[in-house]
């Protein structure tokens, strides 16, 4: 028992510093999200439970407009799957790394595989002698604590914040612009990035803001599938 505690606490000490950027980012973004729910008329229980049970920032923001709109569970499900479709590829990328993790921790690691947790756990160089499973576990857990904490605080105190919040929802746009650019600076060719932007914009102009997501996703998938040969070669090794 004592030995197990020792292994866990060593992993926690190795994991915590890696999550510090996320601590700052998630408290800010989580608070903004909680506040956004608050100013949209929801109790703090909404951001608390959403951040706890969904733990996917972008779709939690989008869910605010779903909850304010007409009741359409099928659309909510499809929209969520489309917005979060990228998780499929995080999962595919983590298949190998999470392979050896014990059965108790693995479901939580998969549950908590958000953009930021994926980035850290995928890129982290875990020091010799640190248990990988516990390391992944604490990165995931700490990130979720920051997010839930920020969202709940925002939901609680969003309404007593003594400044005007109009325009706060831009934080979501800024987040995706930044994620897009991070990807842009990393990649060798920009075909996929440009496809995503251009195809989505064209579909938005053709189908309108309420119906462009599905055609855009299908068009992107088709285009990238057709270009598997040239892009598959150009893209490797990353």
């Amino acid at each position: 028992m004592k030995k197990k505690q020792h292994i866990a606490s060593r992993a926690l000490r190795a994991a915590f510093p890696k999550t510090l950027p996320i601590l700052a980012g998630f408290l800010f973004l989580g608070f903004s999200y909680g506040m956004y729910m608050n100013v949209s008329g929801f109790s703090f229980l909404y951001p608390l439970f959403m951040s706890l049970l969904v733990f996917a920032g972008s779709v939690e923001f989008v869910a605010v407009s779903m909850l304010l709109g007409a009741f359409d569970p099928v659309q909510a499900l499809l929209m969520t799957i489309m917005i979060n479709a990228r998780h499929l590829f995080y999962g595919i990328s983590m298949l190998d790394k999470y392979r050896g993790v014990d059965k108790k921790k693995k479901p939580y690691l998969i549950f908590g595989l958000c953009d930021e947790t994926f980035s850290i756990n995928y890129t982290a160089v875990i020091p010799e002698g640190i248990d990988r499973g516990w390391f992944y576990f604490f990165v995931t857990l700490l990130n979720q604590i920051y997010w839930v904490g920020g969202a709940t605080l925002g939901g609680l105190f969003g309404s007593v914040i003594p400044f005007e919040t109009e325009g706060l929802d831009f934080v979501m746009t800024a987040l995706f612009v930044v994620i897009f650019l991070d990807q842009w600076m990393k990649e060798k060719n920009h075909f996929s990035s440009l496809t995503g932007l251009a195809v989505s914009l064209i579909c938005l102009l053709i189908f309108g803001s309420d119906h462009f997501m599905i055609p855009a996703m299908i068009s992107i998938l088709l285009l990238l599938t057709l270009l598997q040969k040239p892009l598959g070669k150009a893209g490797e090794p990353a």
């Binding site: 972008s58 496809t195 996703m217």
Partner: peptide, 22 residues
Amino acid sequence: IQYLGKVLPAAVFGLLVIYCVK
């Protein structure tokens, strides 16, 4: 699937930027 895992994320981020300004 390996190929999609490599190229799809970039396109999805582009889609999300457009989604924000829709």
